[in-house]
């Protein structure tokens, strides 16, 4: 994952963009349609600071028509150059962003992201949140896309519950860890996972 750091920002993109982005999108779409489900995505080798999964999502979804906010923890010249070369997405402040990338703490506060309007709820931000891993589920989801219940690892349950309460407004989130993604649309209802006793 860190092997490409010595390379220039010209490297690390999709070798076959039409095919690889179709695979990444299918995984991203399935993840958004089935909240909490973990999907592997590969193909991009972004510079150090971005996970493979976040890099793949950016290459698949961003272009000169989408504005992007980089949280301070990923806002390095190497990352900026890589994103600019491969997507052409303009960098903007958080409140104007279609997409935002970064760690959870660095993306705080969350009330600055666009949540859409009541007539156009789609005009909202999509957050790409980098997590260390998905192996500590702490919340349970229900709602569209979930048969009964789904478990998910969330960095802050209360903030995301507040976002879900805005439905049909709110931002949508992809969580990324290494080369895995997991989605949390605004439509999911979130409950803290009760720890099993004994």
């Amino acid at each position: 994952m860190t092997a490409q750091t010595s390379n220039s920002h010209f490297s690390g993109g999709f070798r076959d963009p039409a095919i690889q982005s179709s695979h990444v999108f299918r995984a991203a779409m399935t993840a958004m349609a089935r909240p909490g489900e973990i999907k592997p995505i590969t193909g991009a080798t972004p510079p150090e600071g971005l996970s493979i999964a976040a890099g793949c999502l950016l290459l698949t979804l961003c272009d000169p028509e989408t504005s992007l906010y980089l949280a301070p923890d990923v806002d390095h010249p190497a990352v900026r150059d890589w994103i600019t070369f491969h997507t052409g997405a303009p960098f903007v402040p958080a409140q104007d962003a279609d997409f935002a990338v970064g760690g959870w703490a660095a993306l705080t506060p969350f009330d600055r992201f666009r949540i859409g309007t009541s007539e156009y709820p789609d005009r909202s931000a999509t957050l790409i949140v980098e997590l260390p891993s998905f192996d500590a589920p702490n919340a349970e989801l229900s709602g569209p896309g979930i048969k009964t219940r789904a478990e998910i690892t969330l960095p802050d349950i209360e903030v995301l519950q507040a976002n879900a309460a805005l439905f049909p407004l709110g931002f949508d989130t992809y969580f990324t860890a290494a080369s895995d993604i997991c989605a949390l649309p605004r439509s999911s209802r979130i409950e803290p996972l009760l720890m099993k006793e004994g």
């Binding site: 991203a28 779409m29 958004m32 349609a33 979804l61 989408t66 279609d98 709820p121 789609d122 909202s124 999509t126 896309g145 439905f167 049909p168 949508d172 649309p185 605004r186 439509s187």
Partner: peptide, 9 residues
């Protein structure tokens, strides 16, 4: 991008 927002709402 439109499909993803459609799935979210």
């Amino acid at each position: 991008r439109a499909i993803l927002k459609g799935l979210a709402v």
